[in-house]
Design a protein around this nucleic acid. Structure first.
Length: 654
RNA sequence: GCCCGAGUGGCGUAGUGGUAGCGCAUCCGACUCGUAAUCGGAAGGUCGUCGGUUCGAAUCCGACCUCGGGCUCCA
């Protein structure tokens, strides 16, 4: 190592410093939480050993925030070990929007515990304890953490090279690094803030159980979640976003807007849809059917139950049994509720000989399936036990595969955009550990999927081992209005079912060939998609999807007659009005219409009646009075026809 | 399934061992009003279910059901 090195500082100046000087010492005036050394994230606590150029890593980007959050996690663990002597600490990584730390303690943490811990953390932060890095041999590391079994396990895992765990990316041979602040020490690769005082704003959020290493057969630990931000304002903004998400929760909106509910008498995860929720479903179905018809699909319909023999042939009873409802015994046969529609569609394909001239054959159905989700995972409409997929199976020849997939992806994106979702990412899920078929077939299918994504030109990531047991797949994820990511559409290329069911077609060569099969659902499930769209629009559905498009508010009862005329005019062209004949004051009716999130409120009084006009009010409070009735009708008709994603006043550009 | 928390009229809530209250919604009456809550009255709850402790249970204990936050799993 040289004695002295040259460092180019963020302001452009070059300084000669002794080797071993840390970036923290050079950056102490910049307010940076970490450093980029030659453009790479670098640990503030590590000494420099060659000429470098330095840039501050502010807490306002993802890397900086990760450093901040990880350091806060350390302070959390330090506070917990202070307050709960004997607590074993496991791991504490930064995550999206925050961090957590897992502890092995005799009693779960209560909300009061979290307050105490938070108070202790504030003390540690106020003390401005510097984070200091040290490197130890593995043997010394094991000695240092002699009473910390989880740290021991992590250190031992380092020998197993890759995949050792989230705290370790240092390779098999390197020493282990630890960070000390005050008397406390944690095994960690860093980097960290210069001192605990550099944590400007944090909050502990909740405690929950979590398995060590995410393995449900192992020790259950107590996890504390928290969040940390570069400023009090940023923390407030984040907490506000969480409130906003809660306000948009589809389970809450479902109740408030009278769309659906989950009667305990029916069972967990089994929703019933009320008239307004049913109307939204119908509108989604109508749109979907029209699109599928235009895209060359045939419509089929299949039962909810089938004998065990079908699911034996398909492999579901072998591979998917734990996800299926138990069978009903009847006249010597065992009938299962279907967990998927594919076997049924296959029977339709196989019902007669098929020619290459028929391919691709595209069979579509709103197929209701039942899956026995474990009790702890059921979650509103996004994770139900009975749900309806917009499911289709496409049977095609090998040389049709890539084109079919590419046009499918386009179909998917077009559909999602119609619902106001336009921030996509695809995930290519490859062969899982347990799979059927031959690895070469999997590779072929994966290649076809990859080609299709590339043709569609959307960003994608590869999820190794995440495919279904019978096929690799593309999952399309979207980001909603408040930035949350959802998995929606799924496309799977399958050669297993064609084999298991011995599917064939006769080729131009008069020989028998095996078709490929594509499984695909665009909404994924109607229920889940409805939930996501509801949350995306915060319950204020665009005109074409709103169960009630227009709320008519007669100012006094004498205007009820005119309200009926207006309602009639709207209904005559297929629009969906609703008259508020409650007899309350007009202001109260307007308020009710707002709360019901009806896109258009029409106030009808003497002046409107005399002029055959309406006063139009939108949910944002903007209004226009004296709009001729016919103008409003054609305005709304046009908006619905265009499937506009927002309502607008007549006479305005949409 | 596992850890933690919760369940009081349709919805939101108060009540922590001594005969169950409030707001919204509903119904009735009055008011007939120009862009987010008019006034008055009525009705509505065996406090999730079952069992236990107690002279007495919404309240304490147990089991089950349902929900919420996580873990695991997934459309």
């Amino acid at each position: 190592m040289p004695d002295a090195i040259q460092v180019k500082l963020p302001d452009g100046s070059v300084r000669q410093v002794p080797a071993g000087t840390t970036p923290a010492e050079l950056l102490d005036t910049t307010g940076a939480v970490a450093a980029l050394v030659d453009g790479e994230p670098f640990d503030l606590g590590r000494g420099l050993d060659h000429d470098v150029s330095l840039a501050p890593l502010p807490a306002t980007n993802d890397q900086g925030r990760a450093v901040l959050r990880h350091s806060t996690a350390h302070v959390l663990a330090q506070a917990v070990t202070d307050l709960y002597p004997g607590a074993k600490y496991a791991i504490g990584p930064p995550i999206e929007d925050g961090f957590y730390y897992d502890f092995d303690v005799p009693e779960p943490f209560t909300p009061e515990d979290l307050e105490r811990i938070e108070a202790r953390m504030r003390e540690i932060i106020a003390e401005g304890q510097p984070f200091r890095r040290e490197e130890l041999s593995r043997a010394d590391g094991l000695k240092l953490f002699a009473d910390q079994p989880y740290k021991q396990e992590i250190i031992e895992a380092i020998d197993e090279a890759e995949g050792a765990g989230p705290d370790l990316r240092r390779g098999a041979q390197g020493p282990v690094s630890v960070y000390r602040n005050d008397g406390w020490v944690d095994l960690c690769r860093g980097p960290h803030l210069p001192t605990t005082r550099a944590i400007p704003a944090f909050k502990l959020q909740r405690a929950a159980g979590a398995y060590w290493r995410g393995d449900e057969s192992r020790q259950q630990l107590q996890r504390i979640y928290g969040t940390a931000w570069e400023s009090k304002e940023a923390l407030e903004a984040h907490l506000h976003r969480l409130e906003e998400a809660e306000r948009r929760d589809h389970r809450r909106l479902g109740l408030e807007l009278d769309l659906f509910h989950f009667p305990p008498e029916v069972g967990s995860g089994l929703p019933v849809f009320h008239p307004k929720g049913g109307m939204i479903r119908k509108l989604m179905e109508d749109f979907s059917r029209a699109e599928h018809e235009a895209a060359g699909y045939s419509f089929v319909s299949t039962p909810h139950l089938a004998k065990s023999t079908l699911f034996e042939t398909s492999g579901h009873l072998q591979w998917y049994a734990e996800g299926m409802y138990p069978p009903m015994e009847l006249e010597g046969a065992r009938y299962y509720p279907k967990p998927m529609n594919c076997p049924m569609h296959i029977l339709i394909y196989r019902s007669r000989g098929r020619s290459y001239r028929e391919l691709p054959i595209r069979l579509f159905e709103f197929g209701t399936v039942y899956r026995f989700e474990r009790s702890g995972v059921v979650h509103g409409l996004t994770r139900a036990r009975g749900f309806t997929q917009d499911d289709a199976h496409i049977f095609c020849a090998r040389d049709q595969l890539v084109d079919e997939l590419a046009s499918l992806l386009e179909f998917v994106l077009r559909l999602l955009r119609t619902f106001g979702l336009d921030d996509f990412q695809a995930e290519l899920a490859t062969r899982p550990e347990e799979f059927v078929g031959e690895p070469e077939e999997w590779e072929q299918a994966e290649a076809a999927l990859r080609a299709a994504i590339e043709a569609a030109g959307i960003p994608f990531v590869v999820a190794e081992g995440e495919g279904a047991f019978y096929a690799p797949k593309i999952d399309v994820h979207v980001r909603d209005a408040i930035g949350r990511r959802w998995q929606l559409s799924t496309l799977q290329v399958d050669f297993q079912f064609p084999q298991r069911f011995d599917l064939e077609y006769t080729g131009a060569d008069n020989l028998r060939h095996r078709p490929f099969m594509i499984h695909r659902a665009l909404f994924g499930s109607l229920e889940r998609f409805l939930a996501i769209v509801l949350e995306h629009y915060a319950g204020a559905m665009p005109p074409w999807l709103a169960p009630v498009q227009v709320r008519l508010v007669p100012i006094a009862d004498r205007h009820l007659g005119y309200a009926a005329v207006v309602a009639g005019a709207l209904k005559a062209v297929g629009l969906r009005p609703e008259v508020d004949d409650s007899g309350g004051r007009m202001q109260a009716k307007v308020r009710d219409a707002q709360l019901a999130k009806v896109p258009y409120t029409l106030v009808l009084g003497d002046r409107d009646e005399a002029a055959e006009a309406v006063s139009v009010r939108l949910l944002d409070g903007s209004e226009r009075r004296g709009v001729p009735l016919q103008d409003f009708v054609s305005h709304l008709q046009a908006e619905v026809a265009a499937r506009a994603t927002t309502a607008s006043l007549p006479g305005q550009d949409p």
